[in-house]
């Protein structure tokens, strides 16, 4: 049993880490905005800030978990932090060299919005319902949050594709382009399309696996693997919308830019799944509400 003093210390430290993360996110987005005017060595400073931001967000989870004595991913506040952490890390997986600056700026904007929204929510460590006291929570919830982060980034790429439609410069001829490989399939080779595809191809399996694991947990806890609960329905809707995107990408008659709208619709569906359904406060997942259980 952890002492009251230790709980207070961990809670205070997690708050400091959270505030630091907010500050670092602001610095990161400013650096990204002014990056074209900075000398090249200064740009690498960006990686350091983002790494430190990730460490701060991770620290919040670790400290809150130490204070609560369980894996602290239990309410909307913590899930927003998880999505923010997912976006900070995954944008480097999707676009490690920061060549599409606007994508990184919007992604960091999303992180800022998530952290800002989190400040408006109760941050007290929740008291868990018995159903949530399971190792499955530490598996199912992070996987779903990771998929949401990836889908948000796919949507950002979709928005940028719509904005840049018509105004996009000719494809840069890189070394591989000199021999003609990149001259073909210009639509496919468009960096934003590739980015969106990569995000969706990673997110959909992640979401599918997360949902499947959720079904297994539901069967252990509630005695039913699928209950047509609003959250479950929306998870299925999200999977099917992005499944439709993946299948439509196979049709070469459809330009990827046209499918950018589907990514934007997908964003609305993910938002409805992640936040909107919680407002209804019904169903088996209603403890994921804005207020703590």
């Amino acid at each position: 049993m952890i002492s009251e003093l230790a709980i207070a210390t961990y809670t205070q430290q997690s708050h400091i880490a959270f505030v630091s993360a907010q500050g670092l996110a602001i610095i990161s987005i400013i650096l990204l905005c002014v990056a074209p005017f900075l000398p090249r060595p200064m740009r690498s400073f960006q990686y350091g800030i983002d790494a430190f931001l990730s460490v701060c967000l991770l620290s919040v989870f670790i400290l809150r978990s130490l204070a609560s004595e369980f894996f602290a991913l239990t309410n909307m506040f913590e899930s927003l932090l998880a999505v923010a952490l997912g976006v900070v890390i995954c944008r480097y997986i999707l676009e490690p060299r920061i060549r599409i600056q606007s994508f990184h700026v919007l992604s960091m904007g999303l992180v800022l919005v998530a952290l800002g929204f989190a400040t408006t929510l109760p941050s007290e460590i929740a008291i868990l319902q018995p159903a949530l006291m399971s190792y499955w929570r530490a598996i199912h919830v992070p996987i779903i949050m990771l998929s949401y982060a990836l889908l948000f980034m796919a949507s950002i790429a979709g928005v940028l594709m719509i904005i840049k439609r018509g105004s996009s410069p000719p494809l840069q001829r890189e070394r591989i382009g000199e021999r003609g490989f990149s001259q073909l399939d210009q639509e496919t080779d468009c960096p934003l399309t590739q980015l969106a595809d990569r995000a969706v191809y990673l997110a959909v399996p992640t979401l599918a696996i997360g949902t499947a694991l959720g079904a297994v947990w539901a069967n252990e806890a509630w005695g039913t693997y699928w209950n047509w609960d609003p959250k479950e329905n929306m998870a299925l809707a999200t999977l099917f919308v992005y499944g439709a995107y993946m299948h439509m990408r196979l049709n070469t008659q459809i330009k990827p830019q046209s499918l950018a709208w589907l990514l934007v619709i997908g964003f609305a569906v993910v938002m409805l799944t992640y936040i909107g359904i919680n407002l209804l406060g019904v169903g088996l997942h209603s403890y994921g509400n804005f207020m703590m259980s």
Binding site: W228, M234, F240, M248
Partner: peptide, 17 residues
């Protein structure tokens, strides 16, 4: 296949709301 995916997705959203 795509049409069915979209119809089922819309139905799921309607059933949730």
């Amino acid at each position: 296949g795509v049409l069915l995916l979209i119809f089922i997705a819309i139905s799921c959203i309607a059933g949730s709301l």
